[in-house]
Amino acid sequence: MPGKLLEIIPRPSTERGNADHGWLKTFHTFSFASYYDPNHDGFGALRVLNEDRVRPGTGFGTHPHREFEIFSYVVSGELEHRDSMGNVEVLKRGDLQLTSAGTGIRHSEKTYGSKPVHFLQIWALPSRAGLAPTYFTRHFSDKDKTNNWVRIVAPVGAEGVSETREAEGPAPVNSPVTLWAAILTPGTKLPHTFPVEGAGKGRKAYVHVVQTGGYNEGPATGATVRLSGEGKEVELREGDGAYVMGLPGREVQVQNVGEGNAEVLFFDIE
């Protein structure tokens, strides 16, 4: 990225991998399962960003994972998590669950109750292999996130990060990924400045607009978000995302230019 202060590349929802299995409707930002695109095969340590809707009485049965940091961000409905570490939990809107699979775990994720669950399934590559499996949960209210960036996941050892199973502040991830979330009301603009650590190195970010308006088979609808900075500008609708690349200290603006609220995830990736 020599000579470029800031670059924004849109990732339209209509170009994401997607599937409708009846019990599951899913979109894949990056290559996943039967969907493969060498141009969208992860971004830095961020490897999976799936937006899933699961019908009541169904879900992902018990299956294994290893050497991934796996987190679930619940948008609506309720999600039941069970794993081989003995954790059993029902997650609701505002909840975030993070499993560091490490040397290996088995888990299931199923809809709880009579309503579908809508959640984002996110995987990141760990900074090192062979870690002991661990499990964390956090809760962040809509009030916390309204017109405010809330740090919901951050690297182990970062300021304010607790490695307690349940705690205030961000969940600890063994990966160079920090995840911020916000709910923007119409007209609101929030800046995000790339950290200055590692001066001279390019920084990466991925921005995703949550598809809160529903499952869209055609062009994305609902909220509209504008990303801008250094003379660049891109507009995103629900389900859309964007790759952002810039130098340390550079700022990108995230603004809701639509009529409804916009729920936005901002991944800052070293």
Score class of each variant (00 low, 15 high):
residue 49 L to H: 06
residue 233 E to R: 11
residue 159 E to V: 02
residue 237 R to M: 07
residue 83 D to H: 03
residue 24 L to Q: 00
residue 126 P to A: 11
residue 61 G to P: 11
residue 98 L to D: 08
residue 140 F to H: 15
residue 33 A to R: 12
residue 190 L to K: 04
residue 151 R to N: 03
residue 209 V to H: 13
residue 67 E to S: 13
residue 208 H to W: 13
residue 159 E to Y: 06
residue 104 G to N: 06
residue 121 Q to I: 14
residue 22 G to K: 00
residue 259 E to W: 06
residue 189 K to H: 05
residue 120 L to E: 01
residue 11 R to A: 03
residue 28 H to P: 00
residue 13 S to W: 04
residue 246 G to M: 08
residue 229 G to E: 08
residue 233 E to Y: 13
residue 139 H to W: 00
residue 4 K to A: 08
residue 23 W to H: 02
residue 185 T to G: 03
residue 30 F to N: 07
residue 146 T to E: 12
residue 167 A to E: 00
residue 190 L to V: 04
residue 185 T to W: 07
residue 14 T to K: 08
residue 221 T to R: 13
residue 195 P to A: 08
residue 192 H to M: 11
residue 119 F to T: 05
residue 19 A to D: 08
residue 72 S to C: 13
residue 204 K to S: 12
residue 67 E to C: 12
residue 216 N to D: 15
residue 188 T to Y: 10
residue 178 T to V: 09
residue 209 V to G: 14
residue 63 H to C: 14
residue 111 T to S: 15
residue 88 V to Q: 12
residue 178 T to Y: 00
residue 135 Y to M: 11
residue 83 D to R: 08
residue 173 V to T: 11
residue 202 G to E: 08
residue 230 E to L: 14
residue 94 G to E: 09
residue 14 T to G: 05
residue 120 L to K: 01
residue 71 F to R: 02
residue 179 L to Y: 00
residue 11 R to M: 03
residue 177 V to M: 09
residue 202 G to H: 10
residue 146 T to A: 07
residue 195 P to E: 10
residue 83 D to E: 03
residue 114 S to K: 14
residue 248 P to R: 03
residue 60 F to R: 04
residue 99 T to Q: 15
residue 258 G to E: 01
residue 91 L to T: 11
residue 34 S to Q: 10
residue 64 P to L: 13
residue 167 A to F: 05
residue 29 T to Q: 09
residue 61 G to A: 15
residue 192 H to T: 06
residue 35 Y to F: 15
residue 127 S to C: 06
residue 141 S to N: 15
